[in-house]
Amino acid sequence: MQQILTLQAKDGMTLAKDVMTSEGRVLCGKGTLLTAALIERFLKMDIVQVTVDGHPVSVPGEKSLQEELLEIEERFSEVKSVPPLMYLKKRLMKKLVDSQGG
């Protein structure tokens, strides 16, 4: 699944996660097929991002999961001895894998 801006959503995509209102109620459940009208409604309600199935939006310069993980590794290369930073690194990598793999 991919987390994208509502502005990037298009007709035919499917919600991979529930869309919630600001009060915490479920507006649209996961599995809903998105239509132009629905997307318009989300925008009017200030719903900024949605999570959809697959990976429909190609982000310019987007890298593969492998490349992204390597990049994170590279970013933290000078601080290998610092436990809190290594923890941060681990969490970031896990989030990345979760979001792209799911």
């Binding site: 994170i72 590279e74 970013r75 000078e78 601080v79 930073l85 970031l92």
Partner: peptide
Amino acid sequence: DIMIRALGYGHAGDNKVPMLSKRAW
């Protein structure tokens, strides 16, 4: 600053996460 660099959001000139200050922690 460290967190935003770690997330790779924007670019601060170089892409390395800097050393964490003990005092800050």
